[in-house]
Design a protein around this nucleic acid. Structure first.
Lengths: 215, 215
DNA sequence: TTTTAATAAAGAATAATTTCCTTATTAATT
DNA sequence: AATTAATAAGGAAATTATTCTTTATTAAAA
């Protein structure tokens, strides 16, 4: 099949980043009862080119109808599946500080297929506490829990200087993917998936635009 | 000046996203007392090409010394300034729910030049409370506070379906930049800066890699 | 003092991404 | 039934970002 050659080289990251926004938009339209939506409408909402939308959606099994657009329900269903939001994956979070406890509180993650089953820290103050019904353990207690629960993802929300230590632990635990919220870059074996999400990178982009806006 | 032509078309976003990581790395080296760092070392840490590092740093006033590298302290100082981390900007946050209160708790933002001076919500439960010493007001109370405090940025952490309403309010308040944490895309006048940061987009990228890792 | 090797910097080539263009389809209009 | 206009989809072109190549510099070694 020719169309599969696209999938062979993988979906571009910019496309994957846009897809959750298409999904959120479609979910909104579904609530309003709208049945079809055109690439033009989606593009207008996203402030991008309409062909970008059709190209992005062509990576999925969604097909549009000429002069009508895409079925809203199809976008919601197919995209949820495609993005892995409809199956639940389990995760451990290490670092129950400010950012960490924030994530523990965010039930949106559960809605998008991520179930944080336990948190770890080294501070005696947080250990033993429950944050949004998720218990915080001492990091040494991990090994036992790793056996019981099948966890694929580790979330790092410790200070940057401890990121590598935590990453090493997670790899030893047999974790498949690491979601790294620190600005530090971690070294892991090739087969481990790493996603870096630094809030401060976004801050840098805003500040840069703010300070060079004189056009 | 010829080298300024680069700055004229702006610094590429990928570069701006990498810079805070260079900064974090340099800060770590500074703590360890290392005086110089080469592009090769930085590149090795970041898992990128060394020329990428030199290209990125060439957007700033930092110059390296052949066979020695860059002065660590210069990277820290110049990059902090360049990224706008050394001047404090004030922000309002709207939506003191799970993600919102997480951000209020994150003192890292203060460290990187963002001071959240007040939060807003519509829930009677959160209004009046203080989160990490930041008071939560009813959203209607904003107008009065906007007068007193000079705030350039608005942070949106409400549910996606309310993002546009909040954005409209912020524009009316005279805000310059909006940091949008919802997967919804907002429509604002051209001169308003918008930075979209959706955690769920990052989740989509991880899930995609997890589910297509069979190579 | 001379040689060597590591490096920054500038430019060229490559790769990835986005935008543009064309074609075919089809719902709505006449 | 014929025409029109809006749209999806595929391919080409343009843009943007990354990687490769070359050159010049200079600290360290001989």
């Amino acid at each position: 099949m020719i169309q599969n050659s696209k999938k062979m080289q993988g979906v571009p990251e910019p496309t994957l980043r846009r897809m959750p926004c298409y999904l959120a938009f479609a979910e909104g339209l579904l609530r309003k009862g709208q049945q079809f939506v055109s690439s033009t409408q989606i593009a207008n909402y996203m402030n991008i080119d309409p062909t970008q939308v059709t190209k992005d959606l062509s990576y999925t099994s969604i097909v549009g109808k000429t002069r009508v657009g895409y079925e809203v329900k199809a976008i919601v269903d197919v995209l949820s599946d495609f993005l892995g939001f409809s199956v639940m994956d389990s995760a451990f979070l290490v670092g129950a500080g400010s950012l960490g406890s924030a994530l523990l509180h965010d039930n949106g993650l559960t809605h998008f297929g991520l179930n944080i089953v336990a948190a770890f820290d080294i501070s005696p103050i947080t250990i033993g506490r429950k944050i949004n019904d998720i218990e915080v353990f001492h990091i040494d207690q991990f090994r036992d829990l790793a056996q019981e629960l099948s966890v694929v993802m580790g979330i790092i929300t410790v200070p940057a200087e401890n990121a590598q230590t935590v990453a090493d632990l997670m790899v030893a635990w047999g974790i498949k993917a690491i979601w790294n919220f620190t600005p530090a870059r971690i070294k892991v074996p090739e087969d481990i998936i790493v996603q870096n999400t630094s809030l401060y990178s976004n801050l840098a982009i805003i500040f840069n635009k703010l300070h060079t806006e004189k056009n």
